[in-house]
């Protein structure tokens, strides 16, 4: 299905990403205000696209990988926008907007093709809850990874004494980046936990068993354990700063690998016949 809004939304994201990257590169901090506004415009247009799809499907539009990816991109853009505006974190804009633009572009390319309809048996009130929790959780991990990249860049500049090149560059402090990373991880972890629980309840209601060890379930559990370990190490061993940032990125790479890999290798396994 094609909607009017997808391409304009993608254009907004792409231009926003380009301005964000350019403003970092040339040190023109005022330009990032425009980039933020474009990101916001992209979120609005993208929301219209999702609404149109949702109205047509009669439920949230996540019938295939392309649509799930689009939904993930939207939630990431929305949450990213909130962090950029409310926490004055324009510096992560370059990563967020690029990731969102890339995800939506991939989604748009894959969107062509036969549309799968969600089977009647799976239509349940649990579906939007489970899917939204899971994808919102993933979006938190995207943001946490972006924040961690910024952390590592800033940290290495400070260590190697190159931070001094632009002393008035409004880069957030390491402490702030670390704190934001932590709260994003905590949110992402909680959402993922609830997503797994709600998925299990839904599976029980539909098929009569909570857990069937299919790939998405297994990988979700593995990722859940990794994030649990990440949070645990911070709380007990005091792993913070560089180490925490590096691990956040590593776990995120595993997450992306499984998200993409499973959807390409085992399409249609998770939840039955669609996917």
């Amino acid at each position: 299905m094609e909607t009017l809004w997808l391409m304009p939304a993608l254009a907004c994201y792409v231009i926003s990403a380009m301005i964000f990257v350019a403003s970092r590169f040339f040190g023109r901090t005022r330009a990032s205000g425009w980039a933020t506004m474009l990101l916001g415009a992209g979120v609005v247009l993208h929301a219209l696209d999702l609404t149109a799809r949702g109205l047509q499907a009669g439920t949230i539009p996540v019938a295939n990988f392309a649509e799930s990816l689009s939904f993930l991109a939207w939630l990431t853009a929305l949450a990213g926008l909130m962090i950029i505006v409310r926490r004055q974190m324009a510096v992560i804009g370059a990563y967020i907007a690029s990731a969102v633009a890339l995800a939506l572009a991939v989604s748009a390319v894959m969107m062509h093709g036969a549309r799968l309809v969600i089977p009647e048996t799976l239509r349940s009130a649990w579906m939007p809850v489970h899917v939204t929790l899971a994808i919102l959780g993933y979006s938190m991990f995207v943001l946490a990874a972006s924040t961690s990249i910024v952390y590592l860049v800033c940290e290495s500049r400070l260590k190697t004494k190159r931070a001094i090149a632009t002393p008035d560059d409004p880069v957030p402090s390491l402490e702030k980046l670390d704190r934001i990373n932590y709260s994003l991880l905590a949110w992402g972890f909680s959402l993922l936990s609830f997503a797994i629980i709600s998925g299990a309840i839904w599976a029980d209601a539909t098929w009569g068993h909570f857990w069937s060890w299919e790939p998405v379930e297994s990988w979700s559990l593995a990722i859940w354990i990794m994030y649990a370990g990440l949070l645990e190490s911070r709380l007990t061993a005091g792993w913070r700063g560089r180490r925490a940032a590096a691990l956040t990125i590593v776990v995120f790479v595993v997450l992306i690998g499984s998200f993409v890999g499973i959807n390409l290798m085992y399409p249609g396994k998770h939840g039955g016949s669609f996917g």
């Binding site: 400070l158 931070a163 001094i164 002393p167 880069v171 957030p172 402090s173 390491l174 402490e175 704190r179």
Partner: peptide, 22 residues
């Protein structure tokens, strides 16, 4: 950018502290 940057050792130290601590 005539008013930018730290032009004394003490203010340079303070501005670096601001990049580490919130």
């Amino acid at each position: 950018l005539i008013g930018h940057g730290s032009v004394s050792v003490s203010s340079a130290a303070a501005s670096l502290a601001g990049r580490i601590f919130d």
